[in-house]
Design a protein around this nucleic acid. Sequence first.
DNA 1: TATGAATGAGAGTTCATTCAT
DNA 2: TATGAATGAACTCTCATTCAT
Lengths: 216, 216, 216, 216
Amino acid sequence: MATKRKSGVSDRRNRDSELIAAAITVFYEKGYAAASLQDVAEIVGVLKGSLYHYISSKEDLLARICVESHAQASVIMAESLESADDPLDQLRVYLHRIALWYVNNIERVSIYFNEGKWLTGERLSEVRTQGREFHSFVRTLVDKARSSDRVRDDIDPRVAAQLILGSLNSVSTWYRPDGLYSPEEIASAFTDMSLASISGEVPPVLSRVTAPDGDD
Amino acid sequence: MATKRKSGVSDRRNRDSELIAAAITVFYEKGYAAASLQDVAEIVGVLKGSLYHYISSKEDLLARICVESHAQASVIMAESLESADDPLDQLRVYLHRIALWYVNNIERVSIYFNEGKWLTGERLSEVRTQGREFHSFVRTLVDKARSSDRVRDDIDPRVAAQLILGSLNSVSTWYRPDGLYSPEEIASAFTDMSLASISGEVPPVLSRVTAPDGDD
Amino acid sequence: MATKRKSGVSDRRNRDSELIAAAITVFYEKGYAAASLQDVAEIVGVLKGSLYHYISSKEDLLARICVESHAQASVIMAESLESADDPLDQLRVYLHRIALWYVNNIERVSIYFNEGKWLTGERLSEVRTQGREFHSFVRTLVDKARSSDRVRDDIDPRVAAQLILGSLNSVSTWYRPDGLYSPEEIASAFTDMSLASISGEVPPVLSRVTAPDGDD
Amino acid sequence: MATKRKSGVSDRRNRDSELIAAAITVFYEKGYAAASLQDVAEIVGVLKGSLYHYISSKEDLLARICVESHAQASVIMAESLESADDPLDQLRVYLHRIALWYVNNIERVSIYFNEGKWLTGERLSEVRTQGREFHSFVRTLVDKARSSDRVRDDIDPRVAAQLILGSLNSVSTWYRPDGLYSPEEIASAFTDMSLASISGEVPPVLSRVTAPDGDD
DNA sequence: TATGAATGAGAGTTCATTCAT
DNA sequence: TATGAATGAACTCTCATTCAT
């Protein structure tokens, strides 16, 4: 009889997540503004009009990507607080976990942080609020740690939080999954450097005795 | 600053820099991909089509912006090397200067670092090469400083360079000229934190006393 | 009202009339051209594609709506002729009845008169022919009444018919079922005004003397 | 200074009004919702994207058409009031003038009355307000005329105004410029019939003789 | 029957770019 | 130089319709 193509197995249920996956790839590579649904459709293997069975708009696609990331990011904040009592320890846990999460989901998370600005209306407000929460979370921990002398006095918690989070976010510009470093290595390096960058831990007493002035 | 509508004299060469200035503003605010030449033309006060007496394409506009930044960035690298002998001191000078330059030219430099990827062909290669140079410059200094024990052994110069430069580049996402911090403050905070993040400086006495070899 | 999800019995034939009812609502509110089958499907509670078990096309839906109206409109013409002998009396009866029918079925009838033009091919010809019949029906009665001096000489039957029918059709643009006027009131006002607009019957009081029947 | 006139004649200044004219034709024939800018562009002889040099959106095109009609319609109302003192005379003048105007600009005016509903936001509010003004204008005159016994008591001014204006608006469904009737003939027939439809002007002599009391 | 996935054509709109004036 | 008209391609999105399940 007639030829029956489509012996493909996973045709059924996966379309929706296939679509998200394709969008993640495209948005990550081109940026949301320059990405076209045409590109997404081609990857999925349907006509671009067909995408609208799964989404209601291009922005909707972006929103879905962001929502998932946000939920996970929130969990990481909460868990980090529970994992330790000391602010600096909490910060260490948080930085390591979020970095690991970031690297392991580099495309999606990078979109969340870098392309979320293209959302509009309420969703834009949300993503901005969330961004402030991350920053505020880190700043608060830095601040507390400074109060207990585990962070240097000359550290401004606000600026420190920005620089640390910026450093993390930069990972998406240079990390390659098939590169030299494992996610764990990157997360550790990031965590260690971030903490060192603010730490007063050194041996404050000793160094004060032997070296009257710090470096600069 | 100098130009007036109908001066008849300086209108000539100024249009060109007006155009660049307008493009910088627009590209910075919207991103290159989402920016339209219409926006640029409106700021300059000419019609869209008229722009093509000054540029040959939208990409050309971007290229010009990048070229200027690249030249300045190169100078900063060179001068930093001349300003000191020790690698860590050179790095300190470099980070401070480039940060100050970045903040003081935030729009243009941010475009250079973040939108340069939209260039094509030879120009794309150039901008990528330049990016690698910056990274390589910092990495090399970190590496040298590590060899002379001024940087911790556990620091991977490659990753450190990425994180430091990423931290710097993140400034464009949160710095506001009318904000809480002066360029100098930001540059200093960035420099201090960056050096602290890699430094083995602090415990030299201690480590010499208690541990003959490097820490960790 | 009667149908429930899984009654198993009346679900059958009712879907069909439900569908028509839904289409009437949608076509009336948005106009045929701007209406989407999606809207219809949502009201009925099935998916868009499922509609095609009941209809063969969007136009088919329109055609069915029109057919029913046409049949009823034809009956009204025929009955009106039988209800009296005098052309003007026939016209009076006709106008009153058709107006009452129009108002009581405002959505469906309005579609018939205003959206029938979207039909194509043979069906378009039919609906046009029918439209001409209505007009011709009224024109003929006006003409006859004029011959017997019950309509003014200066009345052009053709134009009069158009204006009267146009006036009737306009009802759909302003009538609201929950408004100030009952269908009966509107039908009467329409009939009275229409007849007065062509009448040579000058003294309405007189007609009460000479004509034993009081209309309404 | 010698003026440099375009010998090309119509190519230059006319595009804008050509565009409006084309849009009027297309909107009139297909209705706004079903009309496509493609159709308009083809008439004008440009690509559809090029239309956006003259308009900012399809709706903008509709709005422009409506604005012009509204202005003229307002003038007719004002002038009619000045042309006579008696309300019924004012009404007669108004109906005749507006009918003449309607027929002479049948496409544009018909769009104003029938397609204005497709406008959105503020413009929709405006066009609706204007529609109420027309109705209110006629209703008020009918009401006044009824107070001075020139209109029958049984006439409801509100319904009468709707039917009269509906009758007028129906002209666009049947009038053909190359048809049997001149604009003047149609305007006169419409005016005469409309006034007769509400008039209590009976034949004073006859009614006085046979019926000493008032009508009704 | 009903679903839900997919199509294909076409809609309105944007935009970098060209070119005669 | 500068304009303004025009292009052509690409974009997001809509919709009537089909069809295997």
